[in-house]
Structures are given as C-alpha cells and as structure tokens.
C-alpha cells in the first residue's frame, strides 16, 4: 500500500514535468520490456499524426505493468503473459486484454552442426537434464546427415524473471508431462539443470562462448544478432524454422477467446512455429477520463491497422487478419463513462 502511494507520487511528478513542458495530452503506460521497441516506434509515429498527444511508456516489466494498471497509476498496462483470474479480480474495474503483436522464442546453440532439428521430446529432455550429449539418439533421430558432436550439452537459461521464460516453459509443459509436474510454467521457475544468465544478451553471450551450449532467446533478438536457430517439430508433425510468418501462423491454429487470454504455444496450424505468444496492452473496458479514453482507443485502432505494418521491420510478427477483425469488435465495445467511443 505504501509502495502504491510512492509510485503515485513519482508518476504524478513525472507526468507534471512532461505535461507542463508541452501542454499536450499525456497518456502514460507501463509494463513489458519485450514489445518496448515496437511500442516506442508506434508512439513516435502516432505523435507525428497527432502532435497534441504524447505517450510516456515505462518498460519496467510485465509484473510492474499489471500492478500499476491495477492501481490505476497508469492509463494502460502491458504484459507478455495474460493476467490470471486472481490478478483480474484485484483490479477495481473490468480490464480488457488487447493483443498488439506476436513474438516467439527461438532455441539457439553453439556447435559445429550447420542446422539442427529438435522434436518436443528432445527439447524437453535436454532442459530436464535427461539428454546430456549432443549425439544422443533422441536428437540424432531427427538430424540424419548432420554430424552431431560427442560432447556434453550445456543448458543456458534466463536467470531474471521474464515473459520469454514464461512462453518457453508454457510450451515445454504442454509437450512434456514430466516438465509439467516437475517444473511447471512461469516467469521464474525452478530449473532442473543449467546456468542462468540475465536477459537475452546474457544468454546469447554465454551460448556464444561455451562450446556445446543451448539456450533460448526472443526471435527478434536472434535475428538481429544472426544466431543459429533450431527448427522445432510442431503439433502437426512438421519441422518449422522460426520466422515472422511462422509466428503469425501460430495464432491461426488456436481458438481465440473473447478476452484473448490464451496460450498459442504448440499451435495445431500446419506451418506454425510452436513456441509463440501474443503480447498485450491492458486497458479498462470503461475509461474514466473522457479525453484520454477516446484518444487511447483511437490509438489502439491505429495500432492494430497501420501500426501492424511497422512490426516486421522490427522483427515482430503482425496479428493475423482474423485476429485483427476480432480486436476491431473489441475496441468498438470499449466505452468512456458508459458511452461508446467515436472511431
């Protein structure tokens, strides 16, 4: 409670400084770090269209974003993982998840093999510590023609709580019962094996310098750093290389509920990359501030249409058309003090 008050004071101060400078309408948000690059691009592009509107986004982590939108200290929150029922119950009003873009988690490795295919069983076995050598039969079976070294596998995983870990462990829990009961899924888990490194950059640094290492990073990060990426066998039995198209395809193979709180890992779609997820903005269904509320809903409308075109250049996967249609209806249902917003 005390903490809440301090945050309010700090934010009020920050907001006061910013708005007194420009005299513009300032919309504040806080949350996930993963979508920060695309969000800041959107905010600056949208500001060019509507100079009277300014955004201030603090990428403090999904947990902090959920906490701040629950305390109403920000106008919108952002989270990689959907909020739980318990978290939603704590909020003073009904919150709506708005999916903005998709991301995926890539398995990267350090070894002499030019390419690597992994079945879900092999992947879970490696991260459970049951498969300890690169030339294990479970890996070799899917990699005919590739010479696998007779070397130990060194598992590298995130040490900081992160949405990337949440998506990765969510996938492992779906494909491996043993993972589900022994480890579970979440932002921080009790890992059976491996070394922990901080952030995508930490995992990359370790994997790059340790022969025989395997780790997981975000697709955007892997692309920008040209890391080797393993193809993963999806639910349809096909080995799929991680790519932006394959990530968008993952959303097509899953029934999307009205509140969008759904895991799209292990998607049934034929060309889907199986370790993918939405990232969300969190807004109240009924906005209290007439001016800000209308501006925010209009911005969201822009983000799911024009904004999507900027996603690919920044290595995010745009929403599939079916999802955009669905979000349109959701945005139309948002209200300001009980009245619908003019779009």
């Amino acid at each position: 409670m005390k903490k809440g008050k301090i945050t309010v004071a700090a934010l009020a101060l920050a907001a006061g400084v910013a708005s007194s400078a420009a005299g513009a309408l300032l919309i504040t948000g806080a949350g996930a770090t993963f979508p920060y690059p695309i969000y800041s691009k959107w905010f600056s592009e949208y500001n060019k269209l509507k100079p009277e509107l300014q955004f201030n986004y603090q990428s403090i982590g999904s947990g902090g974003g959920i906490q701040q939108i629950t305390n109403k200290t920000v106008d919108f929150g952002a989270s990689d993982a959907p909020m739980t029922d318990a978290e939603l119950d704590k909020a003073p009003g009904a919150l709506q998840h708005i999916p903005t873009v998709l991301g995926s988690v890539v398995v990267t490795y350090n070894g002499p093999m030019p390419s690597l295919k992994l079945s879900p069983e092999a992947l879970a076995g490696i991260f459970l510590g049951k498969i300890t050598k690169w030339n294990d039969a479970a890996i070799a079976a899917d990699n005919a023609g590739v010479t696998l070294p007779d070397a130990p596998i060194a598992v590298v995983r995130r040490s900081d709580g992160s949405g990337t870990t949440a998506v990765f462990t969510d996938y492992l829990a779906k494909v491996s019962d043993e993972w589900k009961t022994k480890v579970g899924a979440g932002k921080s888990v009790s890992w059976p094996v491996g070394l922990g490194a901080k952030g995508n950059e930490g995992v990359t640094g370790l994997v790059k310098q340790m022969p025989g290492a395997i780790g997981y990073v975000e697709l955007a990060y892997a692309n920008q750093n040209k890391l080797p990426k393993a193809a993963i066998k999806n639910a349809a039995g096909k080995f799929v290389d991680p790519s932006i198209e394959a990530t968008s395809a993952a959303a097509a193979g899953v029934e999307i509920p009205a509140d969008y709180r759904v895991s799209i890992t292990n998607s049934k779609a034929e060309n889907a990359y199986p370790i993918a997820s939405f990232t969300y903005l969190l807004v109240y269904k009924d906005q209290g501030d007439a001016e800000k509320g209308a501006a925010l809903v209009n911005f969201l409308w822009w983000a799911i249409h024009d904004g999507q075109k900027m996603a690919q250049a920044l290595d995010y996967a745009p929403l599939p058309a079916a999802v955009v249609t669905k979000v349109e209806a959701t945005l139309k249902a948002l209200t300001v003090n009980g009245k619908p917003v003019a779009l």
Binding site: S62, G161, S188
Partner: peptide, 18 residues
C-alpha cells in the same frame, strides 16, 4: 559449480515477481 547470491536473485527476479 554454479551458485547464486542474495543480491543477484533479488535483482533478477524482483521486476517480474508476481
């Protein structure tokens, strides 16, 4: 062997502790 220290785990997990 790898280990973990008190300040390190606080710094690592605090931001996303739910």
């Amino acid at each position: 062997a790898p280990g973990y220290s008190l300040p390190a785990v606080i710094a690592n997990e605090f931001a996303e502790a739910t």
